[in-house]
Design a binder for these strands. Structure first.
Length: 690
DNA sequence: GGGGGCCTGCTCA
DNA sequence: TTCCATGAGCAGGCCCCC
């Protein structure tokens, strides 16, 4: 009988998944917002599903969904493999940890979390009262930022595309986003918060945490009264309503502020029993830090739905998650959270990104990249920040997100520097159809005093070997294999160096750009002095030999102060230091012996390998000749007495020169690896902040 | 072979 | 026809260096 019921039940679920496919489309309603309680969830889900179905976005959502299911299955399998003894062992670990965590409970502080009600929408209504009572959304047809409570009744919500929102609510009024206005009103609320806690923590424009322990004591007021007064103060100052939650820590205060939204408050007493009762039936999704994926994993693998379940299944959590994750889950089960006021948190990175219609147009993409570099540079300079890690973010037409990063030898902030390195990163990804590009600078210098080299390496570690990532100072792999011995070997191929150029002429900064410490160039280094620059200028010496006079548009801006990046082809003796640096940085040119071997037969066929490449493939031809140069260099290395000294670097360099898969391309994607994506990525952060 | 830096993808708010 | 922007942090894999 029971089996029959189960069977009927599962059949019914399968039938539903076929007849109502939108029920498994989880993009909407992963966590109902305030004001959406009475919404016909199924109707909204169906409409969103029907409007999204078949789109690239939809396909990508399905891909992500499949990955999540895969993770769940993987975890289930691990769970099933646990023996009774192992489970008992992990249960003991969990119990011990719960006891330890319990000792950290602090009920001496009172935290208040304040959250403005539908902030952007409310501000817009304030400045245009005719919107009052009408369904309205802030944003546009592509995306809306927030919706007022009238619109939420139709299922319209933040992060929903405008065209879907309009379908759900045809009378919906769209108002464009105006951040200046929101920032202004946010500053007014902060004035009020300051009266209650000088060190309040602004979580965003519309949210803040206040430690009201002191004010309650000094003014002999209950937390309820303080919350009431603060909300009244915010309304008087701005004309906007807000909701508040009070609890013994930030995690609980945040949960509480959502309970009586909008324009309400909820107080959780500083009492262990009250906390445990409150938390016991609380759905895990209400906790900041537990999102859609975590919720699904905990529910589908461990049948954990409430915070109390977290404690009961502690043994399994300790068995299958890292210690920091397990600690976070157990803390949540105990209703623990941060009670201290954190030190001023320094910014770790700065970024910007832009979405546009998907395109393969490289001119457009490079133009967009330049705009991003300009904007980011401007933002960095406003805060006097210099970073040495640059990340390029791309979203393909299929919504696949890629990031490519490079760690530089020196701190940068100028748009020229950012663009120079960003172009290199982008170049490696093209051709591609992209719909979003972003740039992020991180690893800021601690003193913020401007560009400097954080790791002045001596020439004994490398001449132009570059940083630990295997790139030279400009992110190029081209020249990293060159040490002084190699230079000597190469130099032997150049019988006639230009006499007018010496390494002495390089400034210390430029040497640093090359990865050389200035101390390297001593009076005893005559060989090197004379031999480096011919490498960079040989092509200029005899333009008739060179297939391309290649002064890349991707020049290193700092290394080349000249405004004119074009080398005077036949005037190499006048070549200034920046030009030397520039040419050296970017383009290794074929040696004379290589030139003897390397020609474009009939202007299109490589004399060495026979590959055909028409004249107009300027860049590709350059890369090809570079490849043969690198090949030649490797031959020279292997014949050198010091070949061993170069270890395995040349191989890598040559691979890259030839356009073989770069390191990141050689790696399997996470999906291919089927790796389990950790749930606890930001739990440390959450436990610190909440 | 181990330690550690770097890069990538992912998650969450 | 149309599905965001930004900041943060972590695991895991790859690679280099010692």
């Amino acid at each position: 009988m029971e089996n029959n019921e189960k069977s009927e039940s599962s059949t019914s679920i399968i039938d539903d998944s076929i007849s109502k496919p939108w029920q498994s489309y989880h993009t909407v309603y992963t966590n109902a917002k305030a004001g959406m309680d009475g919404v016909d969830k199924e109707k909204v889900q169906r409409i969103v599903y029907e409007m999204s179905k078949g789109s690239k976005y939809f396909e990508n959502e399905e891909r992500k969904e499949a990955l999540m299911r895969q993770k769940i299955e993987h975890m289930r399998a691990r769970c099933a493999k646990l023996t009774t003894a192992e489970i008992a062992q992990h249960q003991k670990v969990a119990e011990r940890r719960i006891t330890e965590l319990e000792t950290t409970r602090d009920l001496t502080r009172t935290w208040l979390h304040v959250d403005m009600d539908a902030f952007y929408a409310a501000v817009e209504t304030l400045s245009n009262p005719s919107l009052k009572g009408k369904p309205m959304a802030v944003g546009g047809m592509s995306m809306i930022s927030t919706a007022n409570y009238e619109a939420r009744k139709f299922g319209v919500r933040a992060a929903m595309p405008g065209f879907i929102a309009r379908r759900l609510c045809p009378e919906l009024i769209f108002v464009p986003v105006d951040f200046k206005k929101y920032t202004y009103y946010s500053s007014l609320t902060k004035k009020v918060y300051q009266k209650y806690d000088q060190n309040f923590i602004a979580a965003s424009l519309d949210e803040a945490y206040l430690d009201i322990t002191k004010i309650c004591r000094e003014r002999e007021m209950s937390s309820d009264e303080v919350a009431e007064e603060l909300r009244r103060g915010v309304f008087e100052e701005t004309g906007l309503t807000c909701s508040a939650g009070v609890g013994p820590n930030r995690l609980l205060a945040k949960v509480c502020s959502d309970i009586n939204k909008p324009n309400g408050q909820f107080i959780l007493p500083n009492d262990r029993m009250a906390v445990m009762t409150f938390i016991s039936s609380l759905p895990i999704r209400k906790i900041g830090g537990i999102g859609k994926v975590t919720e699904n994993v905990l529910r589908d693998v461990f049948e954990i739905k409430t915070c109390q379940d977290l404690l009961q299944k502690g043994g399994f959590l300790c068995a299958l998650f890292s210690q920091s994750s397990a600690d976070f889950f157990l803390s949540v089960g105990l209703g623990l959270g941060s009670t201290d006021t954190p030190q001023v948190r320094l910014r770790k990175s700065m970024s910007n990104e832009r979405t546009f219609s998907a395109t393969r147009d490289e001119v457009f993409l490079y133009q967009k990249l330049a705009e991003l570099a300009e904007m980011l540079s401007s933002d960095l300079q406003k805060e006097e920040l210099h970073g040495r890690n640059l990340t390029l973010k791309l979203k393909t037409a299929g919504f696949e997100v890629r990031t490519r990063a490079v760690t530089l030898q020196k701190y940068i902030c100028s748009s020229e520097d950012i663009l120079w390195h960003a172009k290199k990163l982008l170049k490696a990804e093209l051709p591609a159809s992209l719909r979003l590009m972003g740039l992020r600078v991180s690893q800021f210098s601690e003193d913020n005093v401007g560009p400097s080299d954080p790791s002045q390496k001596s020439i004994t570690s490398f001449v132009i070997k570059g940083d630990a990532s295997g790139r030279d100072a400009h992110g190029s792999d081209d020249l990293k294999l060159i040490d002084s011995d190699v230079i000597n070997n190469i130099a032997d191929d150049y019988d006639h160096f230009p006499d007018g150029v010496h390494l002495d002429a390089f400034t210390s900064d430029q040497l640093s750009d090359l990865g050389c410490s200035s101390s390297y160039i001593s009076d005893n280094d005559e060989d090197v002095r004379g031999k480096i620059d011919p490498l960079s200028n040989i092509q200029a010496r005899d333009s008739s030999l060179a297939p391309i006079v290649h002064v890349s548009e991707l020049r290193e801006p700092d290394a080349c102060q000249s405004s004119d990046i074009r080398l005077p082809v036949h005037d190499y003796k006048k070549t200034d230091t920046s030009e030397c640096t520039n040419a050296m940085n970017d383009d290794a040119v074929p040696s004379s012996s290589l030139q003897a071997q390397f020609q474009w037969v009939d202007d299109y066929k490589c004399s060495i390998c026979g590959i055909e490449m028409p004249l107009e493939f300027v860049h590709e031809r350059q890369e090809h000749s570079d490849f043969h140069l690198a090949e030649r260099l490797q031959q020279q290395c292997s014949s050198s007495n010091l070949a061993n000294h170069l270890s395995n670097t040349p191989k890598r360099a040559i691979q890259n020169d030839h356009g073989s898969p770069s390191r990141q391309k050689k790696r399997k994607s996470t999906a291919e690896q089927g790796k389990y994506i950790p749930i606890d990525k930001f739990f440390k952060k959450r436990t610190q902040n909440m």
